[in-house]
């Protein structure tokens, strides 16, 4: 409740301004990216392999710093001084949950971030429980992460981030390595969130179901931006950037 009120008064937006980034080896991964994401929005970042999706996401919480341009969180740029606070508000779910679940038990993993916030131990237990309930994984609390199934790992990885009550959820390829049932559950979960969601993926059917707005990346540039059905129905656009028109849309708009 309190969090909701805060959001109404002060809706955090995310703005990317003229962002360019080159890796130390000279490989230019992002060029002049600009976009604005409003609070509560669910936006899909799509593009083929190597389009720069993951690199862009790394900038959203300061894991990478731009070579040129800015990422503004609620008007303030991501920089050394604001990093700790921004990382608290931007929850990052990585592509491989094995990278994200590094503690000995699910409980420890969800508590990891909280322990760095100096929350009291009763509060930690409570928040871990709520976060796990949110993704329906409370029963796994004492299990070691390596014993979980792919879908369970993904859900727990999301819980580790939810426990920190972020304003923005950033997900990198959330449906990779999931079976259809796991995927279905995940989509339902993602649709249920009211935080800002930024989802980088090439699972276009997921995008159709979860994201009203889409950004298409290719070669480190934004090549298109707009409503999901407009862009994804544009067969030429999809094809020329290594994507294809999703089946789900074909059925909705039969020729």
């Amino acid at each position: 409740m309190l969090a909701n009120r805060r959001r109404i008064i002060n809706t955090p937006t995310l703005e990317i301004r003229d962002l360019s980034f080159s890796y130390p080896d000279g490989n230019e991964a992002l060029r002049d990216i600009s976009c604005r994401i409003e609070y509560g929005e669910s936006i899909g970042i799509i593009g083929g392999n190597g389009a720069g999706k993951s690199t862009l996401l790394q900038h959203l919480n300061g894991c990478l710093m731009p070579s040129k341009g800015n990422v503004l969180f609620d008007g303030r740029p991501v920089a050394r001084e604001t990093l700790a606070e921004i990382r608290r508000s931007v929850g990052m779910v990585f592509q491989d949950p094995d990278d994200q679940l590094f503690m000995p038990t699910v409980f420890d993993d969800v508590a990891f971030g909280l322990l760095h916030l100096e929350v009291s131990s009763e509060n930690i237990a409570e928040r871990v429980r709520t976060a796990l309930e949110r993704v329906s994984m409370s029963h796994l609390s004492d299990r070691p992460p390596y014993k979980l199934s792919g879908g369970e790992k993904r859900a727990v990885a999301i819980a580790t981030v939810l426990a920190l009550s972020p304003d923005i959820l950033v997900l990198d390829e959330p449906t990779s390595n999931l079976d259809p049932r796991g995927r279905r559950r995940l989509i339902k979960l993602l649709r249920g969130f009211d935080q800002t969601r930024i989802i980088a993926t090439h699972d276009l059917e997921l995008v159709v179901e979860v994201c009203p707005r889409v950004i298409v990346l290719d070669g480190g540039r934004i090549v298109a931006e707009g409503a999901v059905t407009d862009l994804l129905n544009n067969e030429d656009l999809m094809f020329s950037h290594g994507l294809e028109r999703p089946h789900i849309l074909r059925h909705r708009h039969p020729h």
């Binding site: 919480n61 990382r87 608290r88 409980f107 990891f112 971030g113 760095h116 580790t160």
Partner: peptide
Amino acid sequence: DRAQRIYRAMVSRGFDGQIRLL
């Protein structure tokens, strides 16, 4: 590479060089 990704995941959740065990 994996170690680097783990590090990023840790940092994203507020890791400051100290791991606190319960």
